[in-house]
Design a protein around this nucleic acid. Structure first.
Lengths: 206, 206, 206, 206
DNA sequence: AATGAATGAGAGTTCATTCAT
DNA sequence: GATGAATGAACTCTCATTCAT
């Protein structure tokens, strides 16, 4: 959420003081997800968002400072959804390799259900590069830490955890795009298997 | 270039007939690379491009149908530059693994020299998703074929070549972004080593 | 105040019935003076005024019909303050010339303490020219009468009292702007002396 | 004019390169004078100005950076008209007192013909106080110098030239407002006489 | 081939005012 | 008496595109 406990939104606007205002803000955010996801940041217009949310144009500015502000809140929001989703699905893993498999599967299922994710994240690059880089940095940090730990415990071969983290993020991302977004394969399971196989054993014949 | 052998540009405009026209078109394209790369497709304006190219606004429409048309020509152009660059650097490879190493290095060096690449490619997603997907599909196809061949020859372990291709593209892409674009590491060589090590042997401890 | 003895405000709204209402109205008026004075009528917004006064937007319309209404009340209010101030300081004068000196000094000191006066009065011209002209007409009438009387008593040379009144108002006004508002002189006393000297004896060498 | 010889307008926009552009800019400026003069800066809208000038909205921004930019150009322009007018009419004066009379007359006739002057100058105070103060400072400087010279030559009594300058500007201004703008007197000549008499000999009976 | 003035639809944003609570 | 969410018209400003020269 873009509301901190201090009682103000990140944008400096007062948060809604009533339940009604809370509802309105949420429907605006939902509408923004739809419209930004379908048309992209620049093609989407505030008026489309407010129409979708069934409120007047001016209402928008009660809850968000400007177009960029909703967008940031939205990316924030989706990032949190994704992290929650991943955490939940990866938790049961008993090994790092199993965590990779579960994480990849979870990511692919998330993308399948949130087709808007890619457009929104990609757009963030041109809205403000730091939104985009920050988004991936979050995952890279988490990943790095997990991989370091796994290496310490002898579960994975030693190696640069950060580089590996970025490799794994790249893999998830492109597989998600290709197989969850663009052309779904006959069996997603097989895709995951093939990817995890490569991640686990590498390409080289022995 | 966006000119086919049939002698017409993709946009249906006649190609420049004189050397002077040729020059103008090229300076427009160069200007477009600069402006789109710095500001992004939507924030950039035709008038900025013509100013950068030092021609009048009307001149633009002598060479390109519209804003989207230059953009497509530009992506085309960069794609070709990149392919040429990669081909040249990967050619000497004597094994698939060596090809991976050389390809990754070549990609990273290209990105370092063409910082605009990412913004332009990323923007293409919201200009027209098919530009973006087509861009990666080209590489995925090439990769797949090469990996299949390598597997046939017993050089790499058998496995789904297409899935692996997308994994490798994802890896290159994210490493390029992280290490060539955002924060250059002390030693790029080590990054390449770590990545190639993972690609070659996988994560799993033996 | 914009309240007449008939018990209604000029705007047709009922005046506050309780002490609490009275307080609220006053803090609104104080806030209006601050905000209009700092930003000007058109740039200032009702919401700034209510924020400054620490009341909700809707509260404003309990005490004033609309934006113009507060503004009129405010000009009214300042005019009264000014008249009271002048009356008090000019009273002790024993001659018309002394009254000029005291009046000018009092005006300059008032302006020094109420820097907002000019912006508000000047704005009134474009809100409604009659506010502005009415404001000065009040002073012109008072002045004219006094000058006529002084002429009758042989204290000042005979001459068109009205023209002289407007000249004197113009002098006060511009001296106030120049010396009390824009750039305070080393000695205000000397400014007053020079002005009164000119008013008293004119420019011409004898 | 707001064009310097260096070939750029004050606002940083390129000046029109063709005669047609020149014409358009001028009709825009004329329209601005009319609309700003009638409605005031804030109430006037760019679209009214362009309609009055019979050009499209976008055309406006070819010649002026924004609303404030035309306004500044306009004030500049009127100031120059006024100065030219005054210079021409005051030139024949053979004494400082005669110069006062001619200057005042010229100012009153200018105001009668340019009723918009006051609103525009007054508005400048809330657009940007320095436009307004700069406007009067120009006259104050000229006046001061002339009065100093006249005092040196024994033509007027010695005294603070600057204070006198501001007094005289105030007088002109308020007389212009009262007698040229608001309510024309039966005889303007008599008004001038009365004012010049006061300026010349002061109020005090001898 | 090249120019640059002109267009006008449409974007983001503000704000005086209303009204249900 | 007081609140603050909601409204929507109106504004300023941008820019892809056209066209007369």
């Amino acid at each position: 959420m873009s509301q901190t406990e201090s009682g103000r939104t990140d944008s400096g606007l007062c948060p809604p003081k009533t339940a009604r205002g809370q509802k309105t803000r949420e429907s605006l955010l939902r509408a923004a997800e739809k419209v930004f996801g379908e048309k992209g940041y620049y093609v989407a217009s505030i008026s489309e968002i407010t129409q979708e949310a069934k409120v007047a144009m001016g209402t928008f500015y009660l809850y968000f400072k400007d177009k960029e502000d909703v967008f940031r809140a939205l990316v924030q929001h989706m990032l949190e959804l994704l992290r929650t989703h991943l955490r939940k699905h990866v938790a049961p893993a008993t090994s790092q390799i199993e965590a990779e498999r579960l994480g990849l599967k979870a990511f692919l299922s998330f993308v399948s259900r949130h087709k808007n994710l890619y457009r929104i994240v990609l757009d963030s690059y041109s809205v403000d590069e730091t939104i985009y880089s920050g988004y991936f940095q979050v995952f890279a940090d988490l990943y790095s830490r997990r991989l370091s730990r796994a290496a310490e415990q002898g579960e994975v071969r030693p190696g640069d955890a950060e580089v590996r983290a970025w490799c794994l993020i790249g893999i998830s991302n492109f597989l998600g795009m290709r197989y969850a977004l663009w052309k779904r394969p006959a069996s997603m399971e097989k895709v995951v298997d093939a990817a995890v196989d490569m991640i686990t054993h590498g390409l080289q014949a022995r």
